[in-house]
Computed example of a mutant assay.
Amino acid sequence: MATPLRTKEGGPAMRRPAFRRSRGEGPFRFATTGAGVVVLAIMAAIAVFLIVKAIPALQANTSSFLAEKIWTPNATEPKFGIAALAFGTVISSLLALIMALPVAIGVALFISHYAPRRLAGALGYVIDLLAAVPSVVYGLWGVIFLIPFVQGPYTFLNDYFGWIPLFAGDAVYGKSIMTGSIVLAIMILPIIAAISREVFLQAPRALEEASLALGATRWEMIRMSVLPFGRPGVISAAMLGLGRAMGETIAVALIFPATFDITFKVLSNNGNSIAANIANGFGEATPIGQGALIASGLVLFVITLVVNTAARLIIARRKEYSRAAA
């Protein structure tokens, strides 16, 4: 039953609209709450499992797990650390995001606001189809086609732009962090583009028409109305793509040279990631080696949580972002 409310001026009573409750609302609320609790429970169970399995290997480790670059957990005296693997994971994923994000936003804007309807539908279907391609296909494409192809461009970058630390080095190699980053960028591009496209399509039509009525060009309308509205969604899409790049296994395992070093020379024969190292080493690992790999997986789990938490904090910093994301 509605409850009466009086205005501050003492005017006539105002009534709040009463929400009609159906018999199915209680079970539905219980089911949705239970689903949320199950997700949190699964995440907690994964964290507990990783910690329990990693503790014996960490206790047997003879070096600093966070600072050591060497990875020899199967030796008589296990010595391993996550520094080089975490560095390779982060830098390759960030390079992939830097390459993929502008292209993905451009594709999303073209499909949502520039392309004819038939072309937009076909192009959107192709973008969605790219997201369904198995990662091993991308990895094989990188090994067979991309690695030989990039040797020439890498040599050009090294010869003429070697003063930039990223392109420096005595020699360049097809198997490198840069090649892995290119493959990762192609893999995460359809994910970011698909989500951004849907967000841009939700921009209020009234805002777009108002901008055009005031004399704005199509680009000015997009810059003033569409992009501010879609910014939270683009941030979320970028973080989802970044998490996808960090967790990719097979493609980078085929392309990375599987070395343990920390260097910003992304064209050199260096590079590895946590996921690729787990895939390459788990089959032949001793019990301590398996525990070390699980410990590295725990670090990747934490990094992913930090990335997603940072994205939520960025969105929550401004009220309009929070309202749009909600």
Rank of each mutant, 00 (worst) to 15 (best):
V52S: 07
A237Q: 08
A238V: 03
I111F: 06
V133C: 11
A193P: 15
V234S: 04
F301C: 06
T62N: 15
P56L: 02
M1E: 09
R312Q: 11
R29F: 08
S22P: 01
Y321I: 03
L212A: 14
A168V: 05
F110N: 13
L95K: 05
D170P: 10
L140I: 12
K319H: 13
V266A: 01
I111C: 13
E25K: 07
A120K: 03
L146I: 06
L146Y: 02
E220H: 06
P232E: 03
L240D: 08
L66H: 06
N272S: 13
S93H: 03
E68D: 11
I111K: 12
V299F: 06
T62H: 14
T304P: 08
L242G: 14
A251D: 05
I105T: 11
Q290N: 12
R205V: 12
Q202T: 14
A237K: 11
G174C: 04
R6F: 05
Q151S: 12
N269P: 02
L101W: 05
E284S: 15
D261G: 10
L58R: 10
N280D: 11
A2T: 11
M224E: 13
A45S: 09
E25N: 13
P78Q: 05
M187T: 01
R244V: 08
T72N: 14
R218N: 13
P190E: 02
M99W: 05
A2L: 03
F28Y: 09
V39G: 12
G271H: 02
T62S: 15
T259K: 08
L58G: 10
R205C: 03
I42D: 01
I98W: 02
G289W: 00
A171I: 11
M178L: 13
P204L: 00
A194C: 06
R29Q: 11
S268V: 07
M178H: 03
G271E: 00
G281Q: 13
F200K: 12
S93F: 00
S273A: 07
A120F: 00
R21D: 04
A285E: 01
P228W: 01
A213E: 00
G81W: 00
T217R: 01
S22V: 02
R21Y: 09
E320M: 08
P153V: 02
L119A: 15
V37S: 14
T89M: 00
I144V: 13
F110G: 14
S176T: 11
R197D: 12
L207T: 14
Q202H: 12
G121Q: 10
F161H: 14
A132T: 15
Y321H: 14
A251K: 05
N61F: 00
M246A: 08
G34K: 06
